[in-house]
Design a protein around this nucleic acid. Structure first.
Lengths: 340, 340
DNA sequence: GCATATTCTGGGAGCGTTCCCAGAGTCGAT
DNA sequence: ATCGACTCTGGGAACGCTCCCAGAATATGC
């Protein structure tokens, strides 16, 4: 077990104290940048630390403080989340960045949905993590309910849920939808349709409301096609229906890039040029947008910031601050590419 | 600080011992399923555990064992990895699954490339993780070099690298490329071209070699276009070049789905039907494949297994087993969709 | 100059485990 | 009966840190 020997050879706080000529307590105070340490002592300690190559043992610290200094990222229903959410990577990076700034670790909590919520509760209450971030929770999410019940520091990123007392970070879907629709109008489009989806959630409702607000008097309910899913096929079906209803349509706002890609496919099929005959815009700024032909104009989500802010909220709760549970809405930006 | 009080109210091993009427040592033995525990004692302990709701304190255990029971997933150059690798999500899930089976935690080690390798070394030698998994390392990867130097339990998933002594898990690019090309021939294609990429790595070389092997006497070096990147634009440029050289081409093997999508775009542009006039196959079975028009026939990578096997290798090293550093190659499968 | 507040330091105690040694109990062979 | 080997158990001693108390050193006010 050379590995174990090597590990135990690591310098401890006592080694640092000995080299610096101070006590354990003083080293600890320097490490945690507490007050009441003389400048001379601080210098001696920092010198000693680099001299002996000291690295703090997090297990010992966690044991003594009764905190794990870790925040969990709950990943339930793994496949849909990791494989479909276009922004998950950036969100994760944002979370990690905020966490490591505060000397916290990100641990992945992949929850197997077949296991009951008791197991989840055990995990969460077991001290493995001090707080938790939940991405894209659904309504009546069992994990979210456990978190709320346990009163653990937590934050949602993505869509607001029906659980009180847990802050969330999202985007202002209404304003974003309104803005991109307005710009569509400003490019001269008159008969603008929308392919809406996810109306069982606030995000979906808000996108539709934003569209409606932007259209003002020009709003024609006939031109709004509602579909359940944000999927590519929904875009295809929706666009076919829209063309049936309004052959003279010259603009389309699809509530996701995936749907917008479907819209594009249908338009190509029927021989309408984009953006010549019809302007098309999407939502998400996911990989669909850049891969589409032509590349989609769409609403960019500040995914990294979404993650970062959620992490910061958890961190604030951990510091004992009372955070606003009303939710944080981040600004979106419109990316103009070639489709409109 | 109610949270802290709640946390300290957790049952400890002593509480369990008291309820079970045995000693601390016996409880620990049961917890770690060691030998030399009477059936009566074991039963009493397990009963007591569920009675008091005991959850093991990992910090204390980590401190005592000098192990973190965590494995890090090194994420360097965050964006390219998380946002571009089509299989990263599944790999992560596979890793996590193997790790949690063995009671290990996955911690995300996002390395900011601006920080020097000393910091990485500190992280790795700091006892935060017992082992490390590196996805898609590049040649002369500084982190990989640090890992090799430190002798930490580690594994690569994806491409083999030029570093000795660290096992990796990948796919057999040669056989996969050969297989899909063979099937392309079997569908009656005669003039088959290839858009190759990434020839500076084994994976790229192997895919090209597999193509060549499958073509046998029909191999025509003129029909192999080499490009540096696996990108969509490489596919577009490559296909244009290929059409110039061989207008009669009736089959194309692109070394990635992204490139195959580019190939498709060019063929549509020039009015060739797929798979009618030209059969097209890709590699990866990424989201590109299903989103393409028509959906791509391609080589499926067992991404989840890739992650799982890498994690298992690290776990084996941690158990002190000597693992084969020659590399593990997993079987691929060909997915037939509509493009060939 | 003295009392008092403030800054700084040392080190005991404890966090909840595992490790390991010593000893008690059990069993079969002599 | 006696011995040795094996099975099982209890509990002291770490692991490396933080917390906190007591006391020393220094600054401040009268």
């Amino acid at each position: 077990m050379t590995a174990r020997r090597a590990a135990s050879a690591r310098a401890t706080i006592n080694d640092v104290a000995a080299v610096a000529g101070v006590s354990r307590g003083t080293v600890s105070r320097v490490l945690n940048s507490e007050a009441y340490v003389s400048e001379a002592a601080r210098l001696a300690v920092t010198d000693a630390i680099s001299q002996v190559g000291y690295v703090r043992n997090s297990a010992a610290r966690n044991l003594a403080t009764r905190q794990s200094h870790a925040v969990g990222l709950v990943v339930h229903e793994p496949h849909s989340l990791f494989l479909e959410d276009p922004n998950i990577g950036s969100i994760l990076l944002g979370i990690n960045s905020a966490l490591s700034d505060a000397d916290y670790q990100l641990v992945s909590l992949v929850i197997d949905s077949e296991r009951d919520s008791h197991r989840v509760a055990e995990y969460l209450s077991g001290g493995f993590v001090d707080g938790v971030i939940i991405v894209s929770a659904r309504a009546h999410d069992p994990i979210a309910e456990v978190v709320a019940e346990l009163g653990i520091a937590a934050a949602f990123v993505g869509h607001p849920v029906d659980i009180e007392g847990i802050p969330y970070v999202g985007i202002d879907n209404f304003s974003a939808a309104k803005a991109i629709t307005t710009r569509l109008k400003e490019t001269g489009r008159r008969r603008i349709g929308m392919i809406a989806a996810g109306l069982d959630r606030d995000s979906g409702q808000d996108r539709m409301a934003g569209f409606r607000a932007a259209m003002g008097d020009d709003f024609d309910p006939e031109l709004v096609i509602t579909t359940p899913l944000y999927a590519h096929t929904s875009g295809v079906d929706g666009m076919r229906l829209l063309l049936d209803r309004a052959p003279d349509v010259d603009g389309v706002f699809a509530a996701s890039d995936a749907m917008a890609a479907g819209v594009l496919d249908v338009l190509r099929e029927v021989g309408r040029s984009v953006p010549g005959d019809v302007g098309v815009v999407g939502f998400d700024d996911s990989a669909w947008a850049t891969r589409a032909q032509p590349p989609l104009s769409t609403v960019h989500q500040p995914a990294g910031q979404l993650g970062r802010r959620a992490a910061e909220s958890v961190l604030a709760q951990l510091r004992g601050e009372t955070v606003d549970t009303a939710g944080i809405f981040l600004e979106t930006a419109i990316v103009w590419r070639d489709s409109a």
